[in-house]
Design a protein around this nucleic acid. Structure first.
Lengths: 222, 222
DNA sequence: TTCACTTTGTTGTATAAACAACAGAAATGT
DNA sequence: ACATTTCTGTTGTTTATACAACAAAGTGAA
């Protein structure tokens, strides 16, 4: 835990807290670090979630298996992101998603219920916390809308171009790495992997993009 | 404004407040009611949003025009829902969506910035408020994930069945009204209207659903 | 290095969806 | 009650994508 102390202190969840407040909160939260292997399930559909999970190392896919067994990747999370935060607030709502470790992963686990019932939202550090959580949830919300835009394009080409330009904008560069391999990207955009590969090469031949493995560059024309 | 007083008092935003707290807040917020005609824009892409908008009457579509002019309906809001709340919290983020009145609409407008800068989150009513907003944002988040599931199905048939069963579950009944006309539903599910109509009749012929205008009934087999 | 395994790219074929065009029904205004 | 407009359902044609099968490239372990 000590190892991650400064990382935790600078994370969006605990942003703006003094050392004392942070220490107190971590105790009050019964904070602990848990490890998950690549591929391991962190949260399952149907779970009732009472903990805040914050990623310390690794990446996590938020997924859903469709009725007929097809996999949907809703979003991919990485360091400092929170897993399924929305379900913590809506207490009697079951998770309708899976969270799956996409690499070996370390997660900070905070018992939210325990903390809120003890201090009953009264202490000042809780006030800072809830403000931070509110900000985080807003950003997540905007990200989800972004994703809806990505997958709502009607052709594979438009989905790819929309996704890639959004990524470029997010990273403020025409040249960037994407966090997905081809199959995962296809599952994220809800398209067939081979058709996507084909379209990617076509875009490259046309000079709209260049790529090598997970590195992409957008031409000025995109 | 007085007309809506009890409605406002029981809305999720102000839930759990005393009459005094509510009155104080409405004043602090510089609360007022605005009217919009059917089709009028309430929020435009690129706007910087500093007000909380709560729907008092009517329905509002959250939309996005794709680069090539196709319309995407991200979600539809109705009475007591908040419009673009996520963008209020993320202050220096521009709205990336349009909010369009889908009927004649009345909206309660609250100047969030003014209020928070005045009381600096210190007063007790602000604490209740931010907790409420946090809850609301969580629910919105879960709704968006739901929508992603709906549009991520690969066939028109699966999109319709997923959407309809989710609606049924939400309303706890096999028999319900949907808030969309056919074109809007198609824009919501990102599919062609005529192809959707065709698939709906097919589902009806197969006995999986029955419908008349906006009223739908699911057979037990769905 | 070699071998097994995974990932990515390529092609042909079958299929589902978009699109366009239209007809009938329903809603709206005068 | 009528004309006008909007909405919904139907059909045929074109087009894009899924799917399957395979080849090539990359990766990692023995």
């Amino acid at each position: 835990m000590e190892k991650y102390y400064s990382q935790i202190k600078n994370s969006p969840v605990f942003y703006g807290m003094s050392d004392d407040e942070l220490k107190g909160l971590l105790e009050c939260f019964n904070a602990r670090v848990r490890s998950f292997d690549n591929g391991e399930m962190i949260i399952r559909q149907g779970d009732r979630i009472t903990n805040i999970y914050m990623i310390l190392e690794g990446t996590v896919n938020i997924e859903k298996d469709s009725y007929w067994g097809r996999r949907i990747i809703i979003t991919q999370l990485s360091v400092n992101d929170n897993i399924a935060l929305a379900f913590v607030a809506s207490k009697n709502m079951e998770s309708n998603i899976d969270a799956v470790a996409a690499t070996d992963t370390k997660v900070l686990v905070l018992n939210y219920e325990k903390c809120t019932s003890m201090c009953q939202n009264a202490c000042t550090r809780h006030k800072v916390l809830i403000n931070n959580l509110f900000d985080i949830l807003s950003k997540e919300n905007i990200e989800l809308i972004q994703k809806i835009e990505n997958v709502s394009q009607k052709s594979i080409r438009d989905k790819l171009l929309t996704y890639l330009s959004n990524e470029a904008r997010k990273r403020k560069s025409h040249s960037f790495e994407i966090p997905f391999n081809r199959q995962d990207l296809a599952d994220y955009l809800n398209i067939d992997r081979s058709a996507m590969s084909f379209e990617l090469s076509k875009l490259q031949k046309e000079g709209l993009i260049r790529y090598n493995k997970n590195h992409f560059e957008l031409s000025a024309r995109v």
